[in-house]
């Protein structure tokens, strides 16, 4: 299998986004209708009757477009975040899910939905950060942080926050379990412009920041002492990665729940194509992560007339992938 050229991934998002607007679960509007609507928008030529026009606009603009944007944003965010965490921890086996961040952010978001005074994005961010911090300090020994202990600590922290999420749901939500499944399996079917508005700013800011400092991650990836020796303060640099990476992952969780395994599997796929140099992985993560999640979601929303949480698909794809990585990198386990 030949690996596509990098430029392929920079070109693909736009046509993919446009294509995604043309597909849906129903045949209530056809491609011709959409083209006619676009024609109407651009050259103001009335080519459809008013009712049809409104319908096309409602479906394309109010249903499909926010979902397509959200899928792309979240795909980019989770991939960039996963890639950044892997550089930060110098560990190709970590991700927002594995570090407990996703569970923490989901708990924070659920809390914010219950107590309306708490701002959604901020609360998700704070608990996401808290979860990563907890995982890190639980795993920290005098000898540093080993892969195994970090993954174990992440499992514990995830478990705690998932349990807390369940408590919140039990105390407040009459439909309890269904809602928990929605949080833990992630979904995009509730995508709306308000969700896009709530998450677009933190995600874009975080991604831009992580894109700017992409090369510094190469430096960080070589070790604390080496980083210091070449003139960067590793603690400071790590915070500069940690904060935006947490921000974009928790912003994603706050609007779509935990879309599992994206943050782990996608950065690996990117590195398989580009190699580890973050000057290449970050931009490709943005383009590829967004495109791939969008593709999975297109599949998700067209395969049946009912909704299957997208997290089920990503976890089913990513789970075996993680096992494969674990097997392949048993070196990491031994060495640490």
């Amino acid at each position: 299998m030949s690996i596509p050229n990098r430029t392929f991934f920079y070109i693909i998002p736009l046509p993919l986004i446009i294509m995604s607007l043309f597909i849906g679960p129903s045949d209530v509007i056809t491609s011709q209708d959409i083209l006619a609507w676009m024609q109407n928008k651009i050259i103001q030529a009335p080519s459809l009757n008013q009712d049809k026009l409104e319908m096309v606009e409602a479906i394309v603009f109010n249903v499909r477009l926010p979902r397509v944007i959200l899928a792309f944003l979240i795909g980019s965010a989770l991939t960039v975040s996963g890639n950044s965490f892997q550089a930060l921890f110098r560990n190709p086996l970590v991700s927002p899910d594995i570090l407990g961040l996703s569970a923490g952010a989901a708990f924070g978001a659920a809390l914010a939905l219950v107590f309306h005074i708490l701002p959604l994005q901020l609360t998700a961010f704070v608990f996401g950060l808290l979860a990563v911090g907890l995982s890190y300090f639980l795993a920290l020994t005098r000898k540093g942080v080993s892969t195994v202990s970090l993954i174990l600590a992440g499992i514990i922290v995830s478990g705690i926050f998932t349990a807390l999420l369940t408590v919140v749901q039990f105390l407040t939500d009459p439909f309890k379990l269904q809602t928990i499944v929605h949080w833990t399996m992630g979904n995009l079917h509730n995508a709306s412009w308000s969700k896009v508005k709530s998450s677009v700013l933190p995600i874009l800011l975080g991604i831009i920041w992580l894109f700017i400092i992409r090369w510094r991650m190469n430096v960080i990836a070589l070790g604390d002492e080496e980083t210091r020796a070449v003139g960067l303060n590793p603690e400071q640099e790590k915070i500069m990665i940690l904060l935006p990476a947490t921000l974009i992952a928790s912003a994603s969780v706050a609007v779509a729940g935990v879309i599992g395994m994206v943050g782990l599997a996608f950065p690996h796929m990117v590195r398989m194509m580009t190699g580890p140099d973050n000057r290449k992985t970050q931009p490709v993560s943005i383009a590829f992560g967004g495109s791939f999640l969008l593709l999975v979601d297109d599949f998700c929303r067209t395969i049946t007339s009912f909704e299957i949480p997208i997290g089920i698909f990503t976890t089913l794809i990513g789970g075996p992938f993680f096992v494969y990585l674990l097997k392949k990198s048993r070196m990491v386990f031994r060495e640490s």
Binding site: A221, G275, E335
Partner: peptide, 14 residues
């Protein structure tokens, strides 16, 4: 430094 390891297969140039 005396010891050195890398978690990612960066090229020598990188």
């Amino acid at each position: 430094p005396q010891f050195h390891t890398a978690a990612f297969p960066f090229t020598v140039e990188e």
